[in-house]
Amino acid sequence: MEQGTVKWFNAEKGFGFIERENGDDVFVHFSAIQGDGFKSLDEGQAVTFDVEEGQRGPQAANVQKA
């Protein structure tokens, strides 16, 4: 798993971006967030995640709040 920081996340649209430790950004969809209840992330929040190849390039999977 990688570690990163939430760059931004739009809860209304259900997606955002995580900044990886290497400085690259990776797309995150709310469906990739682990846990119960409303799935959202806060700007600046530390997270761990896997990276999978999506239809439009790399995207975060198995996102967990650190």
Rank of each mutant, 00 (worst) to 15 (best):
D24C: 08
G14M: 03
A66F: 11
D50Q: 15
E2V: 13
L41H: 02
N22P: 08
A61C: 08
E52K: 13
F38H: 09
A11N: 11
V6H: 01
A32T: 04
N22W: 08
A66K: 14
D36F: 09
V26T: 04
T48M: 11
G16I: 01
D42E: 15
H29S: 04
K39A: 08
K65P: 13
N62M: 06
D42N: 11
F17Q: 04
G57V: 04
R56T: 07
V63E: 01
E53I: 13
V51C: 06
A11L: 11
M1P: 10
Q45V: 10
N22F: 13
E12I: 11
D50M: 15
R20N: 06
E53A: 11
V63K: 00
V63S: 01
A60K: 00
S40N: 08
D42K: 13
D36A: 12
D42S: 14
N62V: 04
Q55K: 14
E2Q: 15
K13Y: 10
D42P: 09
Q34R: 13
D25W: 12
N22L: 11
G23M: 10
F27C: 03
G23Y: 08
S40R: 12
I18E: 00
Q64E: 08
G35A: 12
I18Y: 00
D50E: 13
E43F: 13
A32M: 06
I18N: 00
F49Y: 07
F17S: 03
G54W: 05
V6A: 03
G57S: 06
G37T: 07
G57A: 05
M1D: 07
I33V: 07
P58Q: 09
E53H: 14
N62P: 01
V63R: 00
V47D: 00
G14H: 04
E43V: 14
E53L: 15
P58L: 12
G23F: 08
V28M: 06
G37C: 07
E2I: 15
T48F: 12
I33L: 09
L41E: 02
R20V: 08
R56D: 06
F15S: 02
A11Y: 13
G14Q: 03
R20P: 04
K13C: 07
K39G: 06
E2D: 10
G54Q: 07
F17R: 04
F49R: 00
Q45Y: 05
F30A: 07
A66S: 12
F27Y: 07
S31N: 08
D24W: 10
D50F: 14
W8R: 04
F49S: 00
A11G: 08
Q64N: 10
V6I: 09
E53D: 12
H29T: 03
I33A: 02
G57I: 04
G4T: 01
E21N: 14
Q64F: 12
D42C: 07
Q34Y: 10
V26G: 01
W8F: 09
T5C: 08
V26C: 06
N62C: 06
V26H: 01
Q55R: 14
A61N: 09
D25L: 13
Q34W: 11
R20F: 04
G44I: 03
E52D: 08
S40I: 10
L41G: 03
F17H: 03
V47C: 05
F38G: 07
F30L: 05
A32P: 01
P58M: 09
F15Y: 15
F38L: 09
R56M: 10
S40G: 08
F30V: 07
D24E: 13
I18G: 00
Q45W: 09
Q59A: 08
A66V: 15
G37E: 06
N10E: 04
E12K: 13
K39W: 07
G37V: 06
E2P: 05
F49A: 01
Q45F: 05
G37F: 07
Q55L: 14
F30N: 04
Q34H: 12
F27A: 02
G54V: 06
F27G: 01
D42I: 15
G4E: 01
G16E: 00
G16Y: 01
F17I: 08
W8P: 00
K7M: 04
I33P: 01
D25V: 13
V26S: 02
G37D: 06
F9S: 02
L41M: 06
E53T: 12
V6Q: 01
E43G: 14
E52Y: 10
E53V: 14
N62E: 03
G54T: 13
V47F: 01
D42Q: 14
Q64D: 07
F38W: 15
G16S: 00
F27P: 03
E43K: 15
A32W: 03
A32Q: 08
K7V: 05
V26W: 02
F9A: 02
Q59G: 03
A46P: 12
D25S: 11
V26I: 14
G14L: 03
F30C: 05
E12H: 14
N10F: 07
Q55P: 15
V47M: 02
K65R: 12
G44L: 05
L41S: 03
R56V: 06
F15C: 05
V26A: 03
V47R: 00
E53K: 13
E2G: 09
A11K: 15
E2T: 13
F9C: 03
F38M: 07
Q64T: 09
V51K: 04
A11I: 11
A46Y: 12
E53W: 15
G14K: 03
G23H: 09
V6D: 01
A32K: 09
I18R: 00
M1A: 12
E2M: 14
A11T: 14
T5F: 12
E53C: 09
N62G: 05
Q45T: 11
E12V: 14
F49N: 00
E52G: 08
G35T: 10
V6S: 02
Q64I: 12
H29A: 03
S31F: 05
V28S: 01
F49W: 02
A61Y: 10
Q64C: 08
F38A: 08
F30M: 06
G35V: 08
N22A: 10
K65M: 12
Q59L: 06
K65D: 08
D36V: 13
V63I: 05
R20K: 08
E2F: 15
A60P: 01
E12Y: 12
A11V: 15
G23D: 11
E12W: 13
V6P: 00
P58H: 08
D24N: 15
E2K: 14
T48A: 07
E2L: 12
W8L: 03
Q59D: 02
F15W: 14
D42W: 10
G23R: 09
K39D: 05
V28N: 00
V51E: 04
D50H: 13
E2W: 14
T5E: 05
G57W: 05
V63Y: 00
E19Q: 13
W8K: 04
P58Y: 10
G37Q: 07
N62R: 10
E21G: 10
S31A: 08
F38N: 08
K39S: 06
A66P: 09
F49G: 00
F49Q: 00
N22G: 12
F38D: 08
A61R: 11
V51D: 02
V28L: 08
F38E: 09
F38V: 09
G16V: 01
F38S: 07
G23Q: 10
R20I: 07
